[in-house]
Amino acid sequence: MTQPPLLTIILTPLLILALATLLTWVERRLLGLWQDRYGPNRVGPGGLFQAVADGIKLLFKQDWIPPFADKAVFILAPAIGMMTVMLSFAVIPVTARQSIADHLNVGLLFVLAMMSLGVYAVVLAGWASNSKYALLGGMRAAAQMISYEVFMGLSLLGVVMITGSFSLHDIVTAQSGLWFIIPQCAGFVVFLLAGIAETHRLPFDLPEGENELGAGFHTEYSGMKFGMFFLAEYAGIILVSALVTTLYLGGWQGPLLPPVLWFALKTGALVAFFILLRAALPRPRYDQLMALGWKVLLPVSLLNIAATGTVLMLHAPG
């Protein structure tokens, strides 16, 4: 395992932050595109600097902590959310060479662990706000994320079983012949859905549920603390997209184009798909969300493991 250059370590989080910021603008433009309008197009070329303007606005907003909040936890919560997402990127292999720790032998477990920790951000934010909407949002987030955590992990087992490794680098290289989306299509679907729920993106954004909870767990947040939740969410989208690319779509591999571009293309398409979901689908009821998880996705992922195992056993040498 080679030591990654210090520059990469410093640049990666900055790049992720920049991409997440940019993504806020991309999302609004894409939503506009699919809703027959323009979206932000006034600030800079094509509205590109809208994200910068929003950032400046958030930075200069009064950073207000409600007097009834648990101050320490209130401040800590967005930091946790941001940190866990950022750390997950450490093990993502962008290309065979561009990565911080893609050879980590428990890379996939590390990602799952970080994502699980991300629940704390939401739950603590909801609890520390000491407001009923925030608390309800936090409760929903906890239930939703812990539930989907279960079969997210289970859905990945198929990939791990085929590869025989938790290292993401190994997983990508194992797909040189066939992308795992073909043999693991069930796992792919389950993981994608679980990823949406993990990042509480539409249509599974019940923790935020504007129309019934105000803004859910971050109702009481303002200024840059709110901005951190916001950026963490967009970074989470990139993370889940990058993971899906890595685990099921062959990572950087592809003909003709350079590997970085392949990775960016696949990830970008998935991000666009995330946004399309938001543009197209309404939010389910909370019980429907939980029912989908426990009654459909869990059995599917278990069946997937069983099927993968059976196939592997039948084809096992000796």
Binding site: L33, W34, L276, A280, L281
Partner: peptide, 8 residues
């Protein structure tokens, strides 16, 4: 729905 939205 996804497809129709995409067509927009």
């Amino acid at each position: 729905t996804l497809f129709l939205t995409f067509l927009h």
